[in-house]
């Protein structure tokens, strides 16, 4: 299991992108701001959980400001934020991404 002990962030507020901030937490907490929240809010949260599970992260607070990003963009940004918060994040295990 990978422990999130510091903060990380990735992405932008530009159209088609997403800005993600993560920080240590006791459990998994997801806060989403999205222009498409009503339509896709649940999908986005499910996607976040999937990424976290694959990277073996059991506790983290994720703040997401979505600007209409595609799934893979959200994935890439979340993974970047996590890798930036992890100590050995500069040598990622590609099979988990």
């Amino acid at each position: 299991m990978a422990d999130i002990t510091s903060c990380g962030h990735a992405g932008t507020l530009e159209s088609s992108d997403v800005l993600i901030h993560i920080e240590p937490s006791q459990d998994i907490e997801i806060n989403l701001i999205s222009s498409v929240e009503e339509l896709y809010g649940d999908d986005i949260k499910a996607l976040v959980l999937e990424v976290l599970e694959k990277m073996n992260i059991k506790a983290v607070k994720v703040d997401i400001n979505d600007k209409g990003a595609l799934d893979y963009v959200i994935k890439a940004r979340l993974q970047t934020a996590i890798l930036r918060a992890l100590e050995d994040g500069d040598k990622p295990d590609w099979s988990l991404l």
């Binding site: 903060c7 962030h9 992405g11 932008t12 507020l13 530009e14 159209s15 800005l19 901030h21 600007k67």
Partner: peptide
């Protein structure tokens, strides 16, 4: 949309 890029830079600087 320039404001969004400026805001991204500012938020990154803060984060």
């Amino acid at each position: 949309g320039l404001i969004l890029t400026v805001m991204t830079y500012l938020l990154n600087a803060a984060y």
